[in-house]
Amino acid sequence: MTLSRVFLLTLLSATLVSAEPKPSLEVQAMLQETYQLQKQERYQEALKKLDEIEALAPGLADVYNMRGSLYLTPALRDFDKAAQQLDKAAAIQPSALAPRFNKAELLFVKKDWPAASAALQKLLDDLPDLQLQVRHLTLFKRLICEVQMDQYEQAEKTLKDHFTFMDDTPAYYYSKAAIASGRNEETTSREWIAKAAKIYKPGQSAAYMDALVESELLPGTNSPPPEKK
């Protein structure tokens, strides 16, 4: 289920910089319900729930951010609508993590590797104190961009400088898999993924697997559905 985990970053953003009051308990519960619908791939219901939230709390950045992330899912893929929603979220919370991450994710999903790499790096530069899980995922996505641009020396440097096999995230193993897959070493790539599966729980690896699928670096996967016109 590609990109459903993006909303986890919305929740994380609440601990960073917020330019708006905390929503009511009712709205918070509805946001959580929307997240559960997204996890269950009930995307149309999630969009409808967001409309209900917006009617109760107009101008809430989380609504625009979640709606934007929904439009990035393969089932609803619409880059223009996603960009419009994420721009609204960023206008309300210009320093918050989630809208900025998702705007970088938009470039990643569009496979604009140079622009995605630059956006991810800016996120790392501007928010040096990112939580480990978010920082590693951001670095991993940047590494994928490097692989897709045939910058294998830089990808290897990213791996060496930022990840080890003893980390609390599977970034090291999935980075090895991404680099191997980029070099058409599918057996080696699968071996690294299998090693990660023995160490980390599925929930810890889901976002990394999503990124491999989305970038077509997971051995044997097909491209996601094209963008809606």
Results as ranks from 00 to 15, higher is better:
L132V: 10
E52H: 05
D51M: 00
A98W: 04
H136N: 15
A96S: 14
K88A: 15
E54M: 00
L124R: 13
F101S: 03
G68N: 12
T73R: 13
I92L: 14
A96G: 09
R100C: 02
Q40L: 06
N65R: 10
G68R: 01
A90G: 08
M66E: 05
A46I: 03
L56N: 04
A83Y: 02
I53T: 07
K110H: 07
T73P: 04
M66S: 04
A46H: 01
L72I: 09
M66H: 04
Q131M: 08
V63P: 04
P74Y: 11
K88L: 15
R135D: 14
F79S: 13
S117V: 00
L127C: 07
A96Y: 04
L130I: 09
I92Y: 06
K110N: 11
N65Q: 13
L123P: 12
Q36M: 10
F108G: 11
L70Y: 01
N65V: 01
M66Y: 03
T73L: 10
G68M: 07
F101G: 04
S95W: 06
A91K: 15
A90E: 15
F108C: 04
Q121Y: 00
Q36Y: 03
D112C: 08
E105P: 01
T73M: 09
D125V: 08
L86E: 09
D80H: 03
L37D: 05
D80E: 12
A89R: 11
I53C: 06
R67W: 10
Y64K: 01
K49F: 05
H136M: 09
K81I: 05
Y71P: 05
A91Y: 13
L127N: 12
E105Q: 09
I92H: 05
D112L: 05
A104Q: 08
Y71R: 03
Q36H: 08
A91R: 15
L132G: 00
Y64R: 02
Y64G: 08
L123H: 10
Q121H: 03
A46N: 02
F108V: 11
A82I: 06
D80M: 08
L60G: 02
A91F: 13
